[in-house]
Nucleic acid binder design. Structure first.
Lengths: 321, 321
DNA sequence: AAAATCAATGTAAACGTTTACATTTTATAA
DNA sequence: TTATAAAATGTAAACGTTTACATTGATTTT
């Protein structure tokens, strides 16, 4: 390449990066050589020298979740505006894959990581943050080393359950998942404290567990119905679970919202493509993504960072009155 | 690192890559130094030297499509088994982003590309294939240089429409999109030839255009109904369009499948989460992904490649009799 | 006309690997 | 013993950049 233009590699570099001076003539010579050869600077040479790549990784468990893909899109947009590129790595819940993707990052492939969810322990998260800039988005572990951007899950659940209560419901099923995510824990807290504030006793039998999915909810909720436990409404921690439960109710001739009211979570497609449309808790995907990137850039640039809690919103649809 | 173990960099490299001989003692020394320092070989040094990264890129327009994410998962699984890692780049339909992701690839970041869909022209696709191994999966352009793995869209549509016809339907709406994708074109051909083979005249008025989405279909199909054109069934090129149309029919008191039968495409979530469940054309995601990767590996290893056409399957549900 | 300044460009080191080749050490054979 | 072979390890070049520094040549100042 340098030979083609008849100049030194240094000059080529200067022209391409518009750094330092050079004459119009050489600039032209280089530029046309670039054109002629279709020359593209090698990423590795550059990265090796600069020790930065301007690429950030977004790590999550599954691409299937449309809420996540929406957050990713926001991250990507703002990152692009700041000269960064985004690459998405889905672990599919496999620890090994998570490890090797993180390895890429710690080996220099990425300038930072935004973690939507991971199986990292508190200690691992903390030590990873010492190796490379990391911010958590949406789901998080509260370590002192890794900033997070999320919503107040407790308050969100509180609001959702309060809506049901204000509609006169008192036997509210909490359809949750058996895991230790902050979101799950927070939503459980919110559920309980809404009951509490309204003088409704907490009933363990109304808490059921699924895995966020639709199909699992169809069989799971069916089993619940078979137990004959009395209830008048459902608050589910995912729209898909809400939809699955609703479909079972439909099959059994139980009307929504007349007999049972339902509130889901995430405002995903299924909440408005199902019949009736499902009332749900919407998280601000756009702001989540944007703030996460900003925090990451703060770390990269050595600026001060902070945890960010964004506000949610209840989207009322036809599954509640 | 080399100093820590008290050996040369060459020895370190040999130990780590288990290449060439060395004594048990030095091996131990290196290994414990690795352990102590938490040493990770730098990806760029390695890539620069080897000119390979063992990473492949999957390029697509949007992560929102669950069919695509399912194909990606298959690619990823088989790639992992062959020592390759996968990274997903979503263009969101933005030409610039497509370009810079492709740049990463041509600059050495990736050993190959699997394109699920792109806005590349035939010429661009062809010339890209001369720079880096590329295979097209699912959606494709027929260039002589870039192998593809897909289904026979014409036959799939033919089968779907034949099902409707064999159920006695003759006024079949073709709900399609206004683009030049092979899938769209093929499905149109299949639709027409099924009509033809059954002596049903093609009626231009029964062809309507949407953008694959649910919301678009709700308004679009509503407009169609307002025109008062007589029809007794719908074949849509996406499940979401089928679901959107079905929801409009529901609102207007038109029964599915009694009054109108519907067939969708892709066997995505919405086809079984909507009520009634939608009959659809299932593509073999697993095989699509697997074959795409195998073809890519063929190119990388300089072996012979071929285009692959996999078979589809009609999944009968409640939107047809 | 000599000295000083400045613009344009080249030189070479550095980034962290891999690997052909050279060298050293150790074991074996004569 | 010494010569030879084999094993272990080191040396140095190469990959493609960036950049501090050096060099060249032209222009300006004295």
């Amino acid at each position: 390449m340098a030979k083609e233009a008849g100049v030194s590699v240094a000059t080529v570099s200067r022209v391409i990066n518009k750094k330092g001076v050079c004459s119009k003539d050489t600039e032209q010579a280089v530029l046309s050589a670039v054109e002629k050869l279709g020359y593209k600077p090698n990423l590795f040479g550059k990265a090796l020298r600069r020790s930065e790549t301007k690429i950030i990784m977004v790590l999550l468990s599954s691409l299937a979740n449309t809420f996540c893909s929406s957050v990713i899109r926001s991250i990507d947009r703002i990152a692009g505006m700041h000269g960064y590129y985004t690459m998405v790595c889905a672990t599919e819940g496999i620890k090994e894959k998570e490890e090797y993707y993180i390895n890429f990052a710690t080996n220099g492939l990425f300038d930072g990581i935004i973690i939507l969810n991971s199986s990292l322990s508190k200690a691992e998260m903390s030590s990873l943050s010492k190796t490379i800039p990391v911010v958590q988005c949406n789901e998080y572990i509260d370590t002192k080393d890794t900033p997070y951007v999320s919503i107040d899950n407790t308050k969100a659940a509180y609001d959702a359950v309060s809506l049901l209560i204000s509609n006169g419901r008192r036997r509210i099923v909490f359809y949750t998942a058996d895991n230790n995510l902050v979101s799950t824990k927070g939503r459980f807290d919110g559920y309980k404290s809404a009951l509490d504030d309204n003088g409704i006793p907490f009933d363990e039998k109304l808490v059921i567990y699924g895995n966020y999915g639709y199909r699992n909810a169809v069989t799971g909720f069916s089993d619940f119905l078979d137990q004959g436990i009395e209830f008048d409404s459902i608050f589910a921690i995912s729209d898909r679970m809400a939809a699955g439960a609703m479909s079972v109710l439909g099959e059994r001739g139980i009307r929504v919202p007349e007999d049972v009211e339902i509130v889901g979570f995430d405002n995903t497609d299924i909440s408005y493509t199902s019949t009736p449309k499902i009332t749900t808790v919407a998280q601000p995907h756009h702001d989540l993504g944007e703030n996460a990137f900003c925090q990451l850039e703060n770390i990269i640039s050595g600026r001060h960072t902070a945890n960010v809690i964004l506000s949610h919103r209840i989207v009322r649809r036809d599954s509640t009155k």
